Computed example of a mutant assay.
Amino acid sequence: MTNKFFPEEQISENDLYFLCYMVERVARKLHQKNKYVVNSIPKEEWERLFSLANVLHCDNPLKIEAEWIEEYKLTTGNFDITDVDLELVDKIPSETQMGKVYTRLILSTLQPEEDYIDGMIRVYNDEICNTIDNYNSSAYYEPSYVITRAYNNGGF
């Protein structure tokens, strides 16, 4: 995938990771599922965000959160990912950890005809995200190949 503004530059896996991390941050802040954030931003905007990711990662994440919420008119929901059974969960994974989980899943299932944007939209709209984002289960900390196999098989 090439950079929209600098065609000689390629979008990197780190750019994908940064945007997965930001999706997680914004979704948690708004009490929404990641899918809501991904689907609320038009594909053309994702192209712009991917092309700017190598610069945006230097910016304050709180500022980027606020900009996304305002620019894409994102609203607060009622999904609280941190609402877990404390007998089952002693530590909720961070936004960075979950950004890595989703980045690895997107990369490991990327189809030849897909770019990172198509892969991201496909993965975040899959039912497996409900399992991965249920921190009362162990899905999110399974090895990458287990998560990929579960995705390919339609669930855990």
Results as ranks from 00 to 15, higher is better:
38 V>E: 02
72 Y>K: 08
96 T>F: 14
79 F>S: 03
47 E>H: 04
93 P>R: 01
62 L>W: 12
76 T>V: 15
97 Q>R: 12
96 T>L: 13
49 L>E: 05
52 L>F: 07
84 V>F: 00
97 Q>I: 11
93 P>N: 01
38 V>N: 02
70 E>H: 13
69 I>Q: 02
64 I>W: 10
60 N>D: 10
74 L>P: 04
48 R>D: 14
48 R>M: 08
57 H>W: 10
97 Q>M: 13
39 N>L: 07
60 N>W: 09
84 V>Y: 00
64 I>D: 05
66 A>R: 14
66 A>I: 13
89 V>S: 00
97 Q>Y: 11
55 V>M: 08
97 Q>C: 09
42 P>T: 06
94 S>Q: 02
65 E>Q: 12
73 K>I: 15
74 L>E: 04
80 D>V: 08
93 P>C: 03
40 S>E: 10
63 K>N: 12
52 L>K: 04
95 E>H: 11
98 M>K: 03
46 W>A: 01
57 H>T: 09
83 D>H: 09
47 E>S: 07
99 G>E: 02
100 K>G: 15
79 F>D: 05
81 I>P: 01
85 D>Y: 01
46 W>R: 02
69 I>V: 10
64 I>G: 08
71 E>D: 15
60 N>G: 06
85 D>G: 02
47 E>N: 04
56 L>P: 01
63 K>M: 15
39 N>A: 09
56 L>S: 00
61 P>D: 04
45 E>D: 12
44 E>Y: 07
59 D>A: 12
94 S>W: 06
68 W>R: 10
44 E>V: 03
46 W>P: 00
91 K>H: 06
52 L>Y: 06
83 D>K: 11
59 D>R: 10
74 L>M: 11
66 A>C: 15
60 N>R: 09
85 D>I: 03
98 M>D: 01
74 L>S: 06
66 A>S: 13
98 M>L: 10
76 T>W: 14
67 E>T: 15
45 E>Y: 09
80 D>P: 05
55 V>Y: 10
75 T>M: 13
50 F>T: 00
43 K>F: 11
40 S>N: 09
89 V>Q: 00
61 P>E: 04
79 F>H: 06
69 I>W: 06
57 H>P: 05
44 E>I: 06
99 G>C: 08
77 G>Y: 04
80 D>L: 08
90 D>L: 04
59 D>T: 12
86 L>K: 04
74 L>A: 07
38 V>L: 06
85 D>H: 01
